[in-house]
Simulated scan of single mutants.
Amino acid sequence: MGEFIGELMALFADGFYRRWHVARTTRRLAAGRPVRVPCSARPERRTGYTNGSLHITPGADSVALVSRDDGRLDLPAGGTFHEPEPDTWHSQDWAATGYLPPGAGELVYLQVDSRYLPMVHVALADPRSQRTA
């Protein structure tokens, strides 16, 4: 019974924390401050996903994908989004999308919590809309 209660506590705590972090991230972006979004990513040529974070600076021309394993990968903004891989999702809460950077770049599959996905789309597709005066 104790394990069950522990699992329920972790489930509710994670949901509360994630809602709080999404609200905080939205406020920081609206204020023109940089944010980090938890993410898993996989370039098309690799087989496994790497956990890391997207470092988004409002109005910047690129978004940095930073992980401990692979270091830093800059994703130029202004690319296109494509359908995700259907069988590689971490969980139902994590939305996946394929991002093709402009200029013959390599397709990168990104997985973020579904509540962060609109922020990621704006940061990569239309970063000029986030520029502050």
Results as ranks from 00 to 15, higher is better:
120 V>N: 01
52 G>W: 00
36 R>L: 13
29 L>D: 02
102 P>L: 02
81 F>P: 03
54 L>I: 07
51 N>P: 00
38 P>H: 06
75 L>P: 05
89 W>H: 12
25 T>S: 15
100 L>Y: 03
37 V>L: 11
90 H>F: 13
123 A>E: 04
5 I>H: 08
83 E>V: 06
35 V>L: 09
114 S>G: 11
54 L>E: 05
35 V>M: 02
39 C>M: 10
94 W>G: 04
89 W>K: 07
70 D>F: 15
28 R>T: 02
76 P>R: 13
93 D>G: 14
125 A>S: 04
108 V>I: 15
129 S>L: 05
128 R>C: 05
60 A>L: 02
96 A>L: 12
104 A>R: 14
7 E>Y: 07
115 R>Y: 01
91 S>G: 00
132 T>G: 03
1 M>H: 08
48 G>I: 04
77 A>C: 12
59 G>C: 15
32 G>W: 03
121 H>L: 10
62 S>F: 15
25 T>D: 05
60 A>R: 04
104 A>W: 12
73 L>T: 11
23 A>I: 09
101 P>G: 02
78 G>F: 08
119 M>L: 15
108 V>Y: 04
79 G>N: 01
60 A>T: 09
99 Y>K: 01
107 L>S: 12
85 E>W: 11
95 A>W: 09
6 G>N: 12
43 P>H: 03
30 A>K: 14
47 T>E: 11
85 E>D: 14
38 P>Q: 15
18 R>S: 11
11 L>I: 04
84 P>Y: 06
74 D>V: 05
106 E>V: 13
22 V>S: 02
50 T>W: 12
7 E>P: 00
14 D>H: 08
36 R>N: 07
120 V>D: 00
95 A>Y: 00
81 F>S: 01
66 V>M: 13
115 R>P: 00
89 W>A: 12
106 E>Q: 12
22 V>Y: 06
3 E>K: 13
90 H>G: 04
47 T>A: 09
41 A>V: 01
52 G>Q: 03
118 P>F: 07
80 T>P: 08
65 L>K: 01
65 L>N: 08
20 W>L: 03
40 S>H: 05
2 G>H: 09
100 L>A: 01
9 M>R: 12
133 A>I: 03
43 P>F: 02
46 R>G: 02
87 D>C: 14
25 T>G: 14
54 L>N: 01
10 A>W: 01
10 A>D: 03
